[in-house]
């Protein structure tokens, strides 16, 4: 073979080796600097910390356990309308009827949309074991990616856990793969089926004066007036 032929062969072998090395680094998740960079990109931690400050949290719920009205919000972690509800509807509900002790809000994570929904729901359930299910869900919505794009990675979910105030990340990591978290997600799904939920978000609002169901894009005024109607 000619000198040029050897050069071409050598260069091709080198470039193949470089690409294989790049793929190996990509699969192994890169070095620590990449995970640090992603963790620092987690949004919403401070906003949610301010929102939940001083309010009792238990499992998936926020608000006083003695509150006469219970608002169950059935959500899919991937649903964009749920993200909008988290950012536009819930803050006024939390600052109003939840804070004044009229209502207690409970997140019910469903997994309609795809595999990212399942991994995110398990992450929420693991946070709920430390009474941080609501706060974790709200920070998750601030970091929601495109549906079924593979956005709910270990890295993103762990970054959200780190940003969740009061969450023990090591215990959360263990809980996420445990049976209790899976059972909690199944239980939420059962409650969703029992309540006839076919779209997310669905707010099931129950109180001494009866119950009301609100589905889809609802604003805070509608939720608050429904709470008042059943209280």
């Amino acid at each position: 073979m000619s000198r040029k032929g050897w050069l071409i062969g050598g260069a091709v072998v080198v470039v193949i080796a470089v690409v294989v090395a790049l793929i190996v680094v990509s699969v192994s998740g890169g070095d620590s600097s990449s995970s640090e960079a992603s963790t620092s990109e987690i949004k919403g931690g401070a906003t949610v910390a301010a929102l939940v400050k001083g309010l009792p949290q238990a499992e998936f719920a926020i608000g006083k356990p003695s509150a006469p009205v219970t608002v169950r919000e059935f959500v899919d972690p991937q649903c964009p309308v749920c993200k909008a509800a988290s950012e536009k509807t819930l803050p006024a509900v939390i600052k109003g009827p939840v804070k004044d002790g009229t209502a207690r809000l409970i997140i019910e994570p469903l997994t309609f949309i795809g595999s990212d929904s399942s991994s995110a729901a398990l992450a929420i359930a693991a946070a709920a074991q430390q009474d941080r299910g609501f706060a974790y869900t709200e920070i998750l919505y601030a970091n929601q990616g495109q549906e079924n794009s593979g956005w709910a990675t270990e890295e993103v979910l762990t970054g959200i856990a780190r940003a969740t105030p009061g969450l023990d990340v090591a215990a959360w990591t263990t809980a996420k793969g445990g049976e209790a978290a899976a059972n909690a997600v199944f239980a939420a799904s059962d409650r969703g089926q029992g309540a006839g939920v076919s779209a997310t978000p669905t707010f099931v609002i129950k109180g001494p004066g009866g119950s009301k169901v609100l589905t889809g894009a609802v604003d805070s005024a509608e939720v608050i007036s429904a709470i008042e109607a059943v209280s």
Partner: peptide, 18 residues
């Protein structure tokens, strides 16, 4: 892809490599 864990290699975005 851009939202996935494969969007970067050792902290470098695939867009820059491309």
């Amino acid at each position: 892809m851009q939202n996935s864990e494969y969007a970067q290699i050792a902290g470098v975005s695939l867009s820059y490599l491309g």
